[in-house]
Amino acid sequence: MKILVCCGNGLGSSFMLEMNVNKVLKELNLKAEVEHSDLASAKAIKADIYIATKDLANQMISLDGYVIILNSIINLNEIKEKLIDAFKKLDIDF
């Protein structure tokens, strides 16, 4: 199970979001490999779930995997709800 968090530069906000995703996964008692990258690299990195904020939504369409679009990088509840949704749709037990 691999999750890739993306932002324009792949340095700051995707990194913060990665740490928040890890926090949520820990809460849900789930294990996944979480990484962050810039948009250009994202296409070359295979992941089960891709995450970005809504201002990048139309840059995420071409990715081959389940895409989560967030309204905020700091709202842990939103991350949790959308991750649970994703796991249900991808048929992953949690």
Binding site: T53, D55, I74
Partner: peptide, 17 residues
């Protein structure tokens, strides 16, 4: 208070971006 990178504000006003 954690101080975060600038894209943190983008989703709040995509047109202003």
């Amino acid at each position: 208070k954690p101080a975060l990178d600038c894209p943190v504000v983008y989703p709040y006003a995509p047109n202003a971006v």
